[in-house]
Design a binder for these strands. Structure first.
Lengths: 201, 201
DNA sequence: TCGAGAAAATGAACGACATTCATATGTGTC
DNA sequence: GACACATATGAATGTCGTTCATTTTCTCGA
């Protein structure tokens, strides 16, 4: 209920608009009344984050090959939090205790990894690595299209400027998706090579 | 000058303590006087970010093999911003125009990549991919040691809980470094495989 | 049906914060 | 000596999250 109203406010005006006063108004209530149900604004943000976790797609694990399931998970994970970038720094350091839906996602992922042959003690660091990449990419997805305009400093950075031009020329404007795709391909390829070695060793 | 004072305040009390009033006091000046030199607090944060960029190690590019130089760059990049996590969401979307030191880092990196044989149009997405991973890892580095305590929900997540235990058992407490190392190894391995293919094709 | 007690709502107030503004003070130049 | 300019200042503003004493509403057992 409160979580739904919070999501409404956020979707309507972004995180800048997500203020206690606005949330209260969306609920038809005075701001102070909120504190009978919530101990802080931060609390509400955690509820929102938990809610978003249900939109992360773990359906591939256990049914598709590891690389396919992992790619699907990573794509949906990034898409969800690219639209909620201000939550990323919160999630990245949030304990899973008291976050059952987040934990459920981790369980599905861990089970999928174990099924695929990852030794149990390797799962946590590998998942953390993928998550770090996903979080960083979710932030990057909000970069403006002109983030790499070198402008008047172009003369001092010939190679980089050429790289920007070549990239833009080959595919139009800058879109962060190219970076995400390149990174996801590389990381999954690197991890799969390691998994192959582990299976044989 | 202002930048130095800002870094002092931040290093002393963290980003919560970095307030206009504190910054002014550190400079021996009234808060309002600051606005004769600065157009907003955000401005100062950008200066700080620029300053931090000089601590990123690009010395390997052009002299060491690509993988070695890239690893050194990534390690120092993450270390710098792990201690300045609140800046990460700012950097991730900050245009390089007007940030000469940031641009200088990009130039060194791009030149190193080009030297190593990366086709010019592939450089931007690959650098973005690595950066995304680095930013995410910098955030993750600030996670509390008990972030993966499943606590009373352990029964519902047997595989993940086992993975946590196995990981903790094999190396003591949770440290984000394991995730960073795993991801960096995988990504560099994946990228190097692609580079080999590009060189031959 | 009544009344006690819990739960929920309210407006006023607080303290922290970034920022603005009218005003003052100093500094160097013609 | 006067003028322009940069810089400093305290008071004031508006926004925000949060607290609190008080009142209203709801629930439920006698």
């Amino acid at each position: 209920m409160i979580t739904d109203a919070a999501l409404d406010v956020i979707e309507h005006g972004g995180y800048d608009a997500f203020t206690v006063a606005k949330l209260a108004r969306a609920l038809g209530v005075a701001p102070s009344a909120l504190y009978n149900h919530v101990s802080s604004k931060q609390d509400v943000l955690l509820w929102v984050q938990e809610d978003l976790m249900t939109k992360v797609d773990v359906s591939g694990f256990g049914v598709e090959p590891w690389a396919v399931a992992t790619r699907r998970w990573a794509l949906s994970y990034r898409d969800v939090f690219a639209r909620h970038a201000p939550l990323v720094p919160v999630i990245a350091v949030m304990p899973v205790a008291g976050a059952p839906r987040t934990l459920a996602v981790y369980e599905a992922v861990a089970a999928g990894f174990a099924d695929a042959g990852w030794p149990i003690e390797t799962i946590v660091p590998v998942v953390v690595a993928l998550e770090s990449f996903i979080f960083g990419s979710a932030l990057d997805a909000n970069a403006p299209a002109d983030i790499f305009d070198t402008a008047d400093l172009a003369g001092g950075s010939p190679v980089f400027t050429a790289a920007i031009d070549a990239f833009a020329g080959s595919g139009g404007d800058y879109t962060p998706d190219a970076g995400f795709d390149a990174g996801l391909d590389a990381m999954i390829a690197g991890l799969e090579a390691r998994l192959d070695r582990l299976r044989k060793g």
